[in-house]
């Protein structure tokens, strides 16, 4: 399983809609920007967002002798992507599956996809601490998993769920690489954060893991959805790019 993959990083959050997929895609693009070969695996089976965020909707997966060929974003083949979104005929088709079928699919994604030599494989997950997460965690015992990045927004109602995810990581022995927090008004820099008060920093302090930075909700970044443009190329001076550079440095130093 994942024989040619050097490092595996899981992007997790107990809460939905906090930006896991956006962080996953931009992190993959940022790692590629710094010269690495990157894979991105989307195991959110009921709500895959990665194909849309990278503008790869409608791509088809082909099978070769060694398994499924992931989608490459361009001819340089430096970013390989796999998602259930590529296997659906129609983008509005629901995937109405109970746990065992989801487990089977994720195992297939990890064993039957022909991942080439990769420096990093980023795994984007759905919210929760259930079948998908348990399956990935079980598989991670057999591969060089570096750990998990936790994504959150600062309001208490999100932090409640994120704390559960941290407990999950601790119980299952997944190393916590750090917390990424997303918030703030896009117009004024010192502005009230839109959801509620300072949460991520306190949480990082509480559970003693690094706070990797705060990403503002930046509509300019939202506009990049649907393309493989990295924030580092398109908006090199934006706060998002600065935080991403920091995370990449942090990860490269660890690995």
């Amino acid at each position: 399983m994942l024989d040619k993959v050097k490092n595996v990083i899981i992007v997790l959050s107990g809460k939905g809609g906090v930006g896991k997929s956006t962080v996953s895609t931009q992190l993959a693009l940022a790692l590629r920007h710094s010269g690495h070969k990157v894979g991105l695996l989307d195991i959110d089976l009921c709500g895959p967002s990665v194909p849309f965020l990278l503008g790869l909707e409608g791509s088809n997966i082909y099978q070769c002798d060694e398994g499924w060929v992931p989608i490459y974003t361009d001819a340089s083949k430096t970013l390989a992507v796999m998602s259930i979104g590529f296997l659906l005929k129609n983008r509005t088709d629901p995937v109405i599956w109970r746990g065992p079928k989801k487990t089977m699919m994720i195992r297939q994604f990890l064993t039957d996809v022909k991942w080439e030599e990769l420096d990093y494989l980023i795994i984007d997950t759905p919210p929760g601490t259930s079948d998908e997460h348990i399956t990935v965690m079980e598989c991670m015992r057999e591969v060089p998993c570096n750990g998990a990045i936790i994504v959150t927004t600062p309001q208490s109602v999100a932090l409640d769920d994120v704390r559960k995810e941290i407990t999950f990581c601790k119980k299952t022995g997944i190393k916590l690489l750090g917390i990424v927090e997303i918030f703030v008004c896009p117009n004024c820099t010192n502005c009230t954060n839109i959801f509620s008060s300072n949460g991520g920093v306190e949480l990082a302090h509480l559970v003693q893991i690094p706070h990797l930075g705060t990403l503002p909700i930046d509509p300019r970044v939202g506009v990049l959805a649907g393309s493989t443009a990295s924030v580092l190329d398109e908006l090199p001076d934006s706060p998002t790019a600065q935080v991403l550079r920091g995370i990449v440095q942090h990860l490269v130093a660890l690995t």
Binding site: G99, S130, D131, F168, K171
Partner: peptide, 11 residues
């Protein structure tokens, strides 16, 4: 506690 995680599969 809020930190308690429910790590359950579907059934």
């Amino acid at each position: 506690s809020v930190d308690d995680a429910i790590i359950w599969r579907g059934p």
